[in-house]
């Protein structure tokens, strides 16, 4: 099974404009019809991975960036492994309204990375 990178996430100060840019240029589809209003991205291809867009507050939450999400079978266990290996936890494991479980960690280089377990 492994622990594959299954999703990317854009953190955007203007998520609406960000979505409009990628739908216009690359014909990506955006679906925000879910409990969090999360803009899920479908790239329109069977190859590669899909993603999403999450808002950040302009001026107070740093700069826009892309995060990778690694699928794991137990988010809490991998959060502990991250800490033991010198990483930090920004967002402890949460169970999202759609049933997915996720956490955000910071690797030793300072990169924020998502861990998630899909609801299935």
């Amino acid at each position: 099974m492994g622990q594959p990178v299954m999703q990317f996430q854009m953190l955007a100060k203007n998520p609406e404009a960000q979505a409009a840019f990628y739908t216009t240029v690359f014909s990506w589809e955006i679906d925000a019809n879910n409990a969090l209003g999360y803009r899920m991205i479908k790239t329109g291809s069977d190859r590669g991975i899909n993603g999403g867009i999450w808002p950040i507050q302009p001026g107070t939450e740093g700069h826009s960036m892309v995060q990778l999400f690694i699928e794991v079978d137990n988010v809490a266990n991998y959060v502990e492994k991250v800490k033991e290996a010198g990483g930090n936890v920004v967002m402890p494991p949460q169970k999202l309204p759609d049933g997915d479980e996720m956490a955000i960690i910071i690797d030793p280089e300072g990169l924020p990375v998502g861990l998630f377990k899909p609801a299935r």
Binding site: G37, M91, P92, A119
Partner: peptide, 24 residues
């Protein structure tokens, strides 16, 4: 806006003031 709500939710979770313990 929903985006404003989600910015606040992220911050509350980071500050350990909110936890999504179950899907609902």
């Amino acid at each position: 806006s929903t985006d404003e709500v989600n910015v606040v939710l992220s911050r509350l979770i980071r500050l350990d003031l909110l936890e999504m313990t179950e899907p609902g």
